[in-house]
Design a protein around this nucleic acid. Structure first.
Lengths: 346, 346
DNA sequence: ATTTAGCACTCAGTCCTTTAGAGTGCTAAC
DNA sequence: GTTAGCACTCTAAAGGACTGAGTGCTAAAT
């Protein structure tokens, strides 16, 4: 479809535009050392590329700018082999060298370093709750009618909620329930706690507990909000340095969307494995029309646990972003798998 | 110092400017029904007010704009009696009607409603840790060398950290330590946990524990990061709708500052009780030069527990903000005190 | 049959100038 | 002390001229 030369020109053009954010003209391209043909030739090629929809003009006599189709093609076929500078690699490695104990800190730090290295906004989806399993439940009374319920997962993750205790339910009832729960619910994935409890425990509970109904509603309220995934951010305002975000309204829309964890959760939920790039309109969200998102997954023992992502303008450094992201995802996978193993084979 | 008429004119001018964000001229003021004197007279008065530093011109033939001194004076002496619409009151009351169980949720919701009602950014400092006391410590092993430590406060607040266990420390040692801690540290304010532990427990621990040194370093690392207060936000991007924040760089600076919880913590830490207003440069932070912050405190049994604040442009609706803030602080105080009582007299 | 030089044309951006309008300060009269 | 009136100031908007980067097309060169 595209000739060698057209590919070459398209690549040069997009590379240039990614660096400068300015429409690229034929002369700019022809000035490069490795370009042997004249600007007139380039003009002809550019006209063809435009006709095919890979590039666009901002006005009738302007230079060309990549279209989303152009970026798509670029990402799919024109990326040069990934190169990470030693500096970047060291940066990332030093992060994991610390061997932090808490998963959440590891992830928070990763988000920080990602945004620092790229000057984009980084977003990390915490380990999927449904892959972590219950280790223990504790109930600690606070007052005569409230108690804190603490769930500890095998990953070290701790969830807690405060709960009202109906007056008709006694402390010994609660102790009984907790005991039963710890017996029956151990190693159940957090995400299916509720259903497992309702199914498997109903009969058992009925046998042992007098006020079964009250206890039941109490337990239901306990698991009512299955906690959504936690979303971590780095460099939330980095996007404001991009020239395409001079417009306050665009910025506001985007930042507002970023604040909504549930929305971002859906954005990041990857559809296929590996490194994925969503360009402009490919993100269904209005606020993301002018953005691209690069996502990568991290795994524990081959199971997808979450994803890490970079959010930038459509004119983003795809190659570099993908390299860094892939690299970090890999390190994260290793670190977390290691950690998990040590839990498992204990 | 200022004549009645000057006071009146200053008040009108600031009120007008707060509404319109446009410099106010003598004609605008003279057009008001309750103004009996001519624009020429007003011009004379404005000249005087300017000389005294209460108002400024944006250029030599522009209308006048309040100076920071002007706002200060306005806030201190010219506020009209507070009026809250029924709608606002209902809005706030309905929030507390729900009787949520978790303190954190109450606070998060409060932040939300504040920002909704005012269209400013709301910031709430969570209950001061040093006023909450330890109820119980739990240690739950995760793997052979890690464990989760869970601290439950009497307020229902739960803290947790993951901890490395040195190989030389045995599980039974840890159990002993936890038991001793629960005996000795119950009802100690969270903030002084570390010092109390180091002082009071050293001797006891030495007696009972073999590997005192390892245990000690382990415990030290546990309390190394005394968790800073949690800061809650509502309407983070509301400030972007204000015309004075058209400038992306200002916005970036401000939003970045907002992201830094420690900085905000210091900004909010109130110096005196009651409702306080900090105008422009009175906030030492560079990023806040063009902002005002209104803060109010909330209490539990007369002890200050935290503060709630509104962040807006210097041209903010002080009267309304202060009313709403005061009202909410009051409700918060009541709600939290109620709750606390029920813990205490249990 | 490509490629290229050359040229006419287009348009955004900058710089000036003009104009309108809002506002001031001052003076002289009330 | 107050006000009408007027000259003056300055911004903001609107228009015009000019520049420069860029294009598309044509005709000549390869």
């Amino acid at each position: 479809m595209l000739t060698e030369r057209q590919l070459f020109i398209l690549q040069l053009l997009i590379n240039d535009y990614i660096q400068t954010a300015e429409p690229v003209g034929s002369r700019t391209i022809s000035k490069r050392e490795d370009v042997t043909f004249s600007s007139a030739t380039i003009r002809n090629e550019l006209a063809d590329l435009e006709e095919m929809g890979y590039i666009e003009k901002t006005h009738s006599s302007s230079g060309r700018v990549p279209s989303e189709k152009g970026y798509r093609f670029y990402v799919d076929h024109l990326l040069s082999p990934p190169v990470l500078s030693k500096k970047d690699v060291n940066n990332i490695h030093s992060l994991f060298a610390e061997r932090m104990v808490e998963v959440e800190k590891v992830i928070q730090q990763s988000a920080g370093i990602l945004s620092e290295l790229t000057q984009y906004t980084s977003i990390i989806l915490g380990p999927e709750v449904f892959e972590t399993r219950l280790r223990q439940i504790q109930i600690i009374p606070l007052s005569k009618d409230t108690a804190v319920v603490i769930l500890v997962a095998d990953s070290g993750h701790v969830e807690n909620r405060t709960m009202k205790i109906p007056p008709s339910v006694s402390m010994s009832d609660i102790e009984k329930v907790v005991n039963i729960m710890n017996e029956r619910l151990k190693d159940v994935p957090l995400i299916s706690l509720k259903s497992t409890m309702m199914k498997e425990m109903a009969t058992v509970l009925k046998k042992h507990i007098e006020n079964y109904n009250q206890v039941n509603t109490m337990l239901e309220s306990l698991f009512l909000y299955t906690n959504a995934e936690k979303v971590y951010y780095g460099g939330k305002t980095n996007i404001l340095t991009q020239p395409e975000f001079k417009d306050i309204d665009k910025v506001r829309l985007l930042l507002n969307t970023l604040e909504q964890d549930e929305v971002m959760y859906n954005v990041l939920r990857p559809e296929k494995n590996g490194i994925e790039v969503k360009i402009g309109q490919e993100n269904d969200l209005e606020a993301m029309q002018h953005c691209s998102i690069v996502t990568a997954d991290y795994f524990i023992e081959g199971k997808r646990m979450g994803s890490i992502a970079l959010l930038g303008p459509t004119r983003m450094e795809y190659q570099r972003s993908m390299s860094i992201l892939g690299f970090l995802a890999n390190d994260l996978t290793k670190t977390l798998t290691d950690r998990y193993q040590s839990f498992k084979h204990w």
